[in-house]
């Protein structure tokens, strides 16, 4: 059986027919070629597949594409192209907070959501927010630094413009 679904992905209206068993991650990667959403475990344990569903970070490997019908999805490609994470990307780049890059998109999506909720998180809060995001390459410290630096910059920019 396939089902028709309709959803908004990165601001674009998408209509597709999918098998109910298809995960949102496979849907994004295989149907829409949005390969920035990665798969590292397919069971919610690595965070490589994080996307925003209705504005909140969720594991795209644990959501079925049919469940997302009628919803709004944003992936790293969308966030990047609309400039929402430019400063985070720059901070990750400056701090060399990625190596192979496979965890990076999930990290950035999660960091974006964190800073939306907690504009100036403490280091512990950053580590806590990343507690489900596995990175084999960096050892995490640079990622924490990059997020903390973005928060600091945003706060000081906000102060300057106030």
């Amino acid at each position: 059986m396939t089902m028709d679904i309709e959803l908004t992905v990165n601001g674009e209206q998408v209509r597709e027919s999918v098998e109910p068993r298809m995960s949102l991650a496979d849907f994004l990667r295989e149907r829409l070629q949005l390969t920035g959403t990665h798969l590292g475990c397919e069971m919610g344990a690595c965070g490589a597949c994080l996307v925003l569903l209705g504005g909140k970070p969720v594991h795209a490997c644990l959501v079925l594409a049919v469940q997302a019908s009628g919803e709004t999805v944003e992936t790293v490609e969308g966030l990047s192209e609309r400039g929402a994470i430019a400063d985070l990307q720059a901070a990750f780049h400056d701090r060399n907070a990625l190596q192979c890059g496979f965890c990076t998109t999930g990290m950035v999506v999660n960091a974006h959501a964190l800073l939306g909720e907690t504009p100036v998180p403490a280091r512990d809060e950053i580590r806590d927010a990343l507690s489900g995001n596995y990175c084999r390459c960096t050892g995490y410290e640079a990622i924490v630094d990059a997020i903390a630096e973005t928060a600091r910059k945003r706060a000081s920019d906000a102060e300057a413009s106030a």
């Binding site: 919610g44 569903l53 969720v58 959501v63 999660n110 507690s131 489900g132």
Partner: peptide, 9 residues
Amino acid sequence: VAHPAIRNR
């Protein structure tokens, strides 16, 4: 309970 993103679902 689990991690933030899991708690969202």
